[in-house]
Design a protein around this nucleic acid. Structure first.
Length: 806
RNA sequence: GGGAGCAUAGCUCAGUUGGUUUAGAGCAUCUCGUUUACACCGAGAGGGUCCGCGGUUCGAGCCCGUGUGCUCCCA
């Protein structure tokens, strides 16, 4: 947003929230419970007024946090999925899809949350491994004598819903029993023994109890074989009258006590430990029960086709692209979408029923009477359920611009399709896929061109941070502690595109330190401000420093531009961080720093301010507050940084860039030599340079002298006795100090370097001697290899000469 | 059971059509240092059989196969 604005685009980002029906309703129910109010004691209207109260109180927190974080959004456009226009649109879409035959009502096996008493979509169920028990239970056969068939189950309480026992048709243990009958233990209901190759012979006893009402696979098996469906559970997970001895007891409770009763009845064979996958509700953590229920569904097949194509053809770009695979797999195996939720908080399903069970879909009761004249005079009641939250969110990019409630308005025509969606990979299916479907269905166009997937923030234990788990860091507290810019820095520097990030406060600390660095650089510049002098020419070394930094700045600006275009945000920030801290502060400012109480040339000063301002602008999208503040501290500005146009980048002078790199190398190498020879920082040395290009060093010798604390710099054609010899590229440096030289370690270093260079030379020579390489490699690659060889040879010569002089 | 992804320095990760000097950064570690922006600092250093094995290629961290370990999604 901020960068686009500085590039004089017209960015718009609509902040807003969805109504999070299940999570919110759960929170409201909990709030009411604390006040001693049961949801069941309230009317729908009363409950909703409490829900709105809750929403008003907490719904805006995330928006407040975004503001505090410095997110530059269009706050006047703030939207909510239950705003009046939005609500109407959701209802309109439901009716439209119903009339197109894409929404239907069907009895299906669903995931039932017994705590929230609602259906869950598959995506809202979390599967965990649980240590359970495998119960082996024998059923008496309806044959003369005391013969039994033994089944294995992890859910013994469901036996009351059994309507068959199934075996594999080729299982020799049971073939003689197929077509016979057995009795369900304790209630002695007679059920058939059937055969189906769905059964795994190896698993359990090879005989499966079939409970169509409580297991998705059993349900399908039941349909295939025309079995009766016996539901044994109430909607709160307690047993109903199908299990006469346990009526009203929770199914988990019954699982614990039934073993003893089976034992007494003589049906229990054995109990084994068993690890299996159990589904839990994402919202309430209750064990999810498969349950047969009448729900509303969206037929997804047709909607999915164009939505898949748009992503696979890259009309919509995913960043990183690896999520295309995930998307494709889901879209190619798409299942119908259960959109009804047994909740009050949300968009109420616009369906009315008469006593005969006929369904009438319309926006209001009045409209039902108009559209369906046969209903006039009949008593109708509305479906009590609400729609899945995502059934409203999927219209977001359209309806925030009122694209459906006010079709073809100027804003929707201007902003749609939108450019970039920033979201989490975990909701590719919940949201992204469905938004694309809605976009195609209702706008005939894709909703967005680029989708950037952020990593998921995890806590130190690697757990996903979530609103419902409550393990998110206290953002406002962190901002108080480190500052908003530092928090932004810390999060962004640790967020490689598409990878999760483990939240660690050390990066926030790094961000805070960076803030200090920025202020200190500002302080230094402000110190120089009154000490400017316009006299004389610009010192040669300062001129070099300015040329070099200009080149470095331009090169980095281009680099960062490329990174941001491809959403590599953390890399861009790292690059800018290095440019400011290392290149500007550690190198450039030191190079132009005037001597003790000396003036600074006014041109140099102004250029340095200009550079710093350019750096701040580059950094601004990442750290908006401090950059804006320093921008105005540096000098009187005509405009704010956040709206200042990003200047076109200057052409990069590669030669000066390289010269700067060489200078940095020389300085580092000589400093290292000083360190290794234990020359104290305060002790000045005399430097003698042996090079065939003295002019290159003369231009920068003041910088060099300052940076390595040399009191003199001289040029020589021959070795200097009793000095520390350092070889770099083709040049040699002799350091003369007032103390003994440690020739042993000096020699060691040179030998180490020599060995490395020789090894390198060998590998290059081997490559060049390889005929196939010379024949097949690209010419420019060969040129590079030849240069490598020449450089290595020159370095080896320099090192060997230095060694000879020791 | 089906699918996808990941494995590079102690940690978190870069490494963009295979060739930019036998791999880079930040943090952490070690050494030296309080020189007039900054100890939330400066200067420097050490640290890697790029998960194992096999293959393609003149050339592999990058491509292919395979094994192992981990993560996620869907049953």
């Amino acid at each position: 947003m901020r960068r686009a604005r500085m590039q004089v685009m017209n960015p718009c980002c609509v902040p807003g929230t969805d109504h999070a029906s299940i999570a919110t309703e759960a929170k409201v129910v909990a709030m009411l419970r604390e006040r001693g109010i049961a949801k069941s004691s309230l009317s729908r209207e009363e409950f909703l007024s409490y829900a709105w109260e809750w929403k008003e109180k907490y719904g805006g927190i995330i928006l407040q946090q975004l503001r505090k974080m410095g997110c530059s959004l269009d706050w006047e456009r703030t939207s909510f999925t239950m705003d009046p226009d939005y609500y109407e649109t959701v209802i309109k879409v439901f009716i439209d899809l119903y009339k197109k035959g894409k929404i239907y009502r069907g009895k299906r096996m669903i995931n039932w949350d017994v705590k929230a008493k609602t259906a869950l979509s598959d995506e809202e169920v979390i599967h965990k491994e649980v240590n359970g028990k495998m119960y082996h239970i024998r059923y008496k056969l309806d044959l003369p004598g005391e013969e039994y068939i033994t089944i294995a189950t992890v859910r013994p309480e469901t036996i009351f819903g059994d309507t068959a026992i199934c075996v594999h048709p080729k299982d020799p243990r049971y073939t003689h029993l197929v077509g016979k009958h057995a009795f369900v233990p304790m209630i002695n209901r007679r059920i058939p023994i059937i055969a189906d190759d769905y059964i795994e012979i190896e698993f359990g006893t090879g005989a499966l109890k079939v409970t169509p009402a409580h297991d998705i696979n059993d349900f399908q098996l039941g349909q295939k074989h025309g079995l009766e469906v016996i539901d044994t559970m109430n909607d709160d997970g307690t047993m109903n009258d199908a299990a006469p001895m346990y009526i009203g007891k929770d199914r988990i409770e019954v699982r614990k006590i039934i073993a003893a009763d089976l034992e007494v009845a003589g049906n229990l064979v054995k109990i084994e430990d068993y690890v299996n996958q159990v589904g839990f509700s994402e919202r309430t953590d209750a064990i999810v029960e498969p349950r047969l229920s009448l729900q509303w569904w969206v037929d997804m097949k047709q909607l999915a086709e164009p939505a898949l194509e748009k992503v696979m053809s890259d009309e919509i770009h995913f960043h990183p692209a690896k999520f295309k695979n995930v998307y494709r797999h889901w879209m190619e195996n798409i299942k119908d979408w259960c959109i009804s939720r047994q909740l009050w908080w949300g968009h109420r399903i616009p369906a009315w029923y008469d006593k005969e069970g006929n369904v009438y879909v319309e926006a209001s009761l009045e409209k039902v009477y108009t559209t369906y004249p046969e209903t006039v005079g009949k008593e109708l009641y509305q479906d009590a359920d609400c729609l899945d939250t995502w059934f409203s969110s999927w219209l977001w990019p359209i309806e925030v611009f009122k694209g459906m409630s006010n079709p073809n308005n100027a804003e929707i025509n201007y902003y749609y399709p939108t450019s970039t969606l920033v979201t989490a990979p975990e909701i590719i299916f919940f949201w992204v896929a469905r938004m694309i479907m809605a976009g195609e269905e209702y706008m005939g166009k894709i909703p967005v061109k680029d989708v950037y997937f952020t990593g998921i923030v995890r806590d130190k234990q690697g757990r996903k941070m979530s609103k419902s788990l409550g393990n998110s860091p206290d953002l406002l507290g962190l901002i108080d502690q480190y500052g908003a810019d530092a928090v932004r820095f810390g999060i962004m520097i640790a967020s490689p595109a598409g990878n999760d990030l483990l939240f660690d406060e050390s990066t926030l600390e790094q961000g805070r330190n960076f803030n200090s660095k920025l202020w200190n650089a500002t302080k230094l510049l402000k110190m120089w401000e009154p000490r400017q002098s316009k006299e004389g020419a610009i010192p040669e070394d300062a001129a070099f420093a300015m040329d070099w930094f200009q080149a470095k700045l331009s090169a980095t600006q281009i680099e960062v531009g490329e990174m941001l275009k491809t959403f590599r945000l953390s890399e861009a920030l790292k690059t800018i961080y290095g440019l400011i801290w290392d290149d500007y502060c550690s190198w450039y400012l030191e190079w132009i720093k005037p001597g003790f109480e000396q003036p600074i040339h006014a041109t140099v000063f102004e250029k340095s301010i200009e550079f710093y301002d350019a750096l701040l602008q580059l950094l601004h999208p990442f750290m908006p507050f401090i950059t804006e503040e320093i921008h105005h501290t540096l000098k009187t500005q005509t405009e704010d940084l956040c709206v200042k146009e990003l200047v076109p980048f200057e052409k990069v002078d590669e030669a000066v860039l390289h010269a700067g790199l060489l200078l940095k190398n020389v300085i580092s190498t000589l400093r290292d030599a000083r360190n290794k020879n234990q020359i104290k920082p305060k002790d000045a040395i005399d430097l003698h340079i042996q090079s065939d290009n003295n002019a290159a060093y003369q231009r920068i010798q003041n910088i060099l002298a300052k940076q390595i604390n040399a009191k003199t710099i001289a040029y020589t054609n021959a070795a200097i006795g009793s000095s520390i010899v350092v070889a770099l590229e083709k040049d040699k440096f002799y350091l003369v100090a007032d103390q003994a030289i440690d020739t042993v370690s000096l020699k060691e270093n040179l030998l180490k370097d020599l060995a490395h260079q020789k090894g390198f030379l060998e590998s290059v020579e081997k490559k060049l001697a390889n005929e196939k390489f010379v024949q097949n490699a690209k010419p420019e690659v060969i040129v590079i290899e030849q240069k490598k060889k020449a450089d290595a040879l020159a370095r080896i010569q320099t090192i060997e000469e230095s060694l000879a002089q020791l």
